[in-house]
Design a protein around this nucleic acid. Sequence first.
DNA 1: GTTAGAATCAACCGTGTGGTTAGACCAACT
DNA 2: AGTTGGTCTAACCACACGGTTGATTCTAAC
Lengths: 216, 216
Amino acid sequence: MAHTQRSEMAFARRQRILEAAAEVFAERGFSGAGVNEIARRAGVNKAMLYYHVGDKQKLYEEVVLGFLTQVHHQVRVGIAKAATPVDKLAAVHRAILELALERPNYPRIMLRELSLGGANLPPEVFRQMASLFATTREVVEEGMAAGQFRRVEPVIAHILLIGSVVFFANALRLRDRLGAAGAQLPGLDTVLQAAAQITHILLHGLAAPGQEGVVP
Amino acid sequence: MAHTQRSEMAFARRQRILEAAAEVFAERGFSGAGVNEIARRAGVNKAMLYYHVGDKQKLYEEVVLGFLTQVHHQVRVGIAKAATPVDKLAAVHRAILELALERPNYPRIMLRELSLGGANLPPEVFRQMASLFATTREVVEEGMAAGQFRRVEPVIAHILLIGSVVFFANALRLRDRLGAAGAQLPGLDTVLQAAAQITHILLHGLAAPGQEGVVP
DNA sequence: GTTAGAATCAACCGTGTGGTTAGACCAACT
DNA sequence: AGTTGGTCTAACCACACGGTTGATTCTAAC
C-alpha cells in the first residue's frame, strides 16, 4: 500500500487546496481572490496549486462543481425519504438549506456567480443545475397532478425554493452591520426556526386552495 | 446662467460616469471592474473619474447608494397609493420588481454585495437598508394586527420579498445557458407574468388562515 | 544503490492595475 | 488683455497579480 499512501497524501493536499480556494472565493469573489492567498491558506507553495489542480479558473470550477453535485445528491436523498409531494418539496428545501448553513462558503459563491450570469462557469456546471432543476420540476408536477399544489410554472417554484435559501443564508451575514445601522432585528431564537418559517410560507403559498391544511 | 451651464455639464458628466460604473460593476463585480474600462465606457479620461467622483471605492458607494434611495422612494410611493396591508405589501413587491427589471444592473450589484457581506459598503448604505426594512416591517405588522397576515417575523417577510425579486431578476440571465444545458424551461409568456406568480405565491403564503381570499 | 518520476519550492517574469501629476485648455469675470 | 478657476488630458508610476521555470527533494521499485 506504499504507493497508495503517496497518492492519498496527494489527494488530501488537493482537498486542502480546494477548501482553501472555496474559502477565499467565498470571501472575495473570483476576481478578488488571489492565488497567492489561496496557497497561503492551504499551507502550500503557490506552484502546488497549478500542479495539483490547475489555474485559477480550474480551481474555481472544481469548487463550484463539487458543491453542486453534493447538493443534488442530498436533494435526491431527501426526496427518496418523503412520501407526498408536499413532503418531498419540503425535503428539497431542507436539504438545500442544511447544506447552505453547514457550508456557508458555497451559497456565497453561488450567489455571486448568479449575479455574474455564470460567466466563470463551464457548461458542465449548467448541466448539473439543469439536472437539479429537473428533479424539483418532477416533484412540483407530481404535486400539481395530485391537486396539492396550485398550478404554477415549476421554474417559479424552483427559483423561490433555491432563492429563498441562498438569499437567507447570505443575509445572515448582514445582521450585525444592519443592527449597527439601526435596523430593528429579529427575535429569532434560532436560525433553523427562521428557516422553518420560510419553508412554511413557501409551501403554504404553493398549496392549492383548500389544501393548505396539508402543509406541516 | 453661464456658470450654471458649466456646472450642468459637469453634473451630466458625473451621471455618465456613474452609469458607466454601474454597468461595469454589474458585469464584473467590484474587484473585476477596472477603472480604465469605466472611463472608456463613459467616454472620458480616467483622471476624470477621480476628479468628478473619486476613487473606485467612492464610485461604487455612489452607485449603490443612488440605487437604494431610489428603491426606497418608489416603495414608499407604492405604499402610499395602496389601501389594505395586503395591497401595500403587493405594492412593495411590485415597486422593487419594476425597478429591478427596469435597471437590471442594480440587482446584480446588490446580489453580489450581499454575498460579500457588504464588505465594500459604507455605513450609510446600511442605514438606507435598515430604513427600507423598517418600512416593510410597518406594513407587515399592520397586516398582522389586522388579522390579514399570519404571525411571522417581519424580517422573514422582508427577506422573501426582496430575495425573490433579486434572485428572479438575476436568474433571468441564466436562461439561455441553462436551456443549452438541457433544462426544460418555462412556457412563460412574459417576465411580468412570472413575476406576478411570485407575488401571488408569497402573499398567499403570508395570508392568515381563512384570509387567502383577500389576496388578489 | 541506482534510478524514474512524483512532489515541492524559491525565485522570477510580463502584464495590467489603481491611482497620480504636471500642465494645457477654455470660458468667464475684472 | 490678463487672470482666475473649473475642466480636462497624456504620460507616468509603483506594485500586486496570475502564471512559469528550473532546480531539488522524496519515495518506491528494481
